Simulated scan of single mutants.
Amino acid sequence: MSLSKKITLPLRAIQGVFALVVLALSGYVAHWYNTTTVISSPSEINFLFFCSLWSLLSIATLEILIPRVIAPKTAASNYIALGVELSNILFWFSGFVALATFLSKLLFCRGSVCQSAQADVAFAAAGWLIWTGTGVLMVRDVMAKGGLAMRPSWKRSGAGSKQPVEVPATKEEV
């Protein structure tokens, strides 16, 4: 088992815990808005609710579906996993920045709902950092496997052959 595999599994557990915490906090704030005020819950809260659900599905996909069911040990599984990982990085970053911006523009913020929303921002930011860390590990692994690395054409032409590549002349050179 490689070092990144040993590191990734505990990080996935932490991602799952943070996703559950953000799910609970976002659910509490959304419930407060929907039952106490005449307006519905802000889209920023709803988006973080989606982010936490997406993360839980992603963790199941990355740790169970891709390695065992979808495409074990193929190049396609590397790209699917990388796409799932990068989507989580994007969603968490968007979510915590949007909620932080929303909270900064409120005229007043007090009580347990405000504190829950502020904690939601903090846990979402921490979740983004952890997803970024596992994303870096995944990009490193995919590049080490040769999945995303651009190779010169002489490396593809055969084992050990370093044939020069002929470059066509431009009109100015002729």
Rank of each mutant, 00 (worst) to 15 (best):
Y79S: 11
S26E: 11
G133M: 01
G127R: 00
R110I: 15
W154Y: 15
E85R: 00
T170C: 12
L25E: 06
V165R: 10
S153A: 13
F18Y: 07
S58F: 03
T134P: 04
V136H: 10
A98D: 00
A126W: 04
T134G: 10
M1Q: 10
R151A: 13
A98Q: 01
L137W: 07
Y28F: 14
K5L: 10
S40G: 10
T101E: 10
Y79D: 05
S161D: 09
I89K: 00
G27E: 07
V69K: 06
S4C: 04
F96C: 07
W154K: 06
S41C: 09
L129H: 02
L82Q: 06
W128E: 02
L137S: 09
K162T: 08
V174N: 13
G95V: 07
P10A: 15
A19K: 00
C114G: 10
A126E: 08
F49E: 00
P10N: 13
N34A: 14
W92D: 00
S161L: 06
F108V: 09
G135A: 07
N46K: 13
S104D: 09
S94C: 12
G111E: 12
L99I: 07
L129M: 14
F102R: 08
G95K: 00
V142D: 04
V113F: 05
F50T: 01
K155W: 13
T8I: 08
F93L: 05
A149T: 12
L129C: 14
L57I: 07
P152M: 15
F96G: 00
D120E: 15
N34C: 14
Q118C: 14
K155R: 14
V22M: 04
F93S: 05
T170K: 08
G95T: 03
G158Y: 10
P10W: 13
V121F: 00
A13W: 06
A98R: 00
E85C: 14
K73E: 12
K5A: 13
T132S: 08
Y33G: 06
A124K: 00
K171E: 12
G146Y: 10
I80S: 02
Q115K: 11
R68W: 05
F123L: 09
P10H: 14
T74M: 11
V142P: 00
L9H: 03
S52L: 02
A30I: 14
P42G: 06
A71N: 01
S40N: 13
G27I: 03
A119C: 02
S116P: 08
S2H: 07
N78P: 01
I89A: 06
V21F: 06
E44M: 05
S2N: 11
S58D: 07
P42T: 10
E44I: 03
